[in-house]
């Protein structure tokens, strides 16, 4: 069953058309990897889903509810409710530097969720355990490595109990030796049936974890397929060219 339905998404920055008629579905428990050259519109597409970018045309439905229909957005409260089903992890973490790890996790739930403080604390303790950072609860982001920061950012997103988690190049800002720990957390999430859309340059991760790979180029989806198919026998020349360059 489709949990996200995207139809004919269009977006321009000034005269530059960044997204041209993007259409695809994401099913529950899917792990979708989005790959493509720099500037192809991957981030813009992802950011449109959580209303960090406003699209010019097309439709987005999340969990059967319409965020935007033929370019017309729902009411602000609706937008808020619908986008809150999704969590987002950024390339540059965007942790709150003035708050400890534990406070980073608990700030938004305390402000936004109607939950007891006890439940929130219980969840943050569990999540810190899950990402292997129980001993860093009191640390500030400035004192964490990049990999640790990104794991905290993932936990912070999970604190809101999202149905879907979006990742925009979660490992691109990390030293190569630190990507593994972040990818491991993401693999664990996939194992726990989390629905994820991951914009990534990590072809290994896409191959191993994704059940669907979308190749974007120049604002279009060129090809969508299971990784076994897309990486082994891509149907289009553009895909082949990109993959050849990526694996060189």
């Amino acid at each position: 069953m489709a949990i996200i339905e995207i139809q004919n998404l269009k977006k321009s920055f000034g005269k530059q058309e960044v997204l041209k008629q993007i259409t695809f579905d994401v099913n529950k428990n899917d792990v979708v990897a989005v790959i493509g050259p720099s500037g192809s519109g991957k981030s813009t597409m992802l950011r449109s889903l959580v209303h960090l970018e406003k699209i010019d045309g097309g439709s987005i439905r999340v969990g059967g509810e319409s965020l935007v229909q033929d370019g017309i957005y729902s009411k602000p409260q609706e937008i808020k409710r619908i986008t809150s089903k999704m969590g987002m992890v950024f390339q540059h973490f965007n942790l709150f530097p003035h708050l400890s790890v534990k406070e980073n996790l608990e700030l938004a739930p305390r402000l936004v969720k109607k939950e007891s403080s006890k439940d929130i604390q219980k969840r943050s303790t569990e999540l810190l355990e899950k990402i292997g950072l129980s001993n860093r609860a009191a640390s500030y982001p400035a004192n964490l490595s990049g990999g640790q920061k990104q794991r905290v950012a993932i936990a912070r997103a999970l604190m809101m109990n999202p149905d879907i988690l979006l990742f925009d190049e979660p490992t691109s800002a990390l030293d190569p030796e630190l990507t593994g720990e972040v990818l491991q957390v993401m693999k664990d999430l996939a194992k726990d049936q989390m629905t994820m859309i991951v914009v990534t340059h990590e072809m290994g991760f896409a191959k191993e974890v994704a059940n669907k790979v979308i190749f974007m180029d120049d604002g279009e989806i060129v090809e969508t397929a299971h990784p076994d198919k897309l990486f082994v026998s891509p149907q289009f020349e553009r895909t082949r060219t990109f993959l050849n360059r990526s694996f060189k």
């Binding site: 960090l52 986008t83 987002m88 950024f90 540059h92 003035h98 700030l107 938004a108 809101m160």
Partner: peptide
């Protein structure tokens, strides 16, 4: 950084919460 506003937004914080809990503390610092 504008990422701070974006992070707050995707965590469903409203404008007031973002200003008072995320932006102003950092601004003073």
């Amino acid at each position: 950084d504008k990422g701070q506003y974006e992070a707050a937004q995707v965590l469903s914080m409203n404008k007031w919460q973002t200003t008072t809990r995320v932006i102003l503390p950092q601004m003073f610092r």
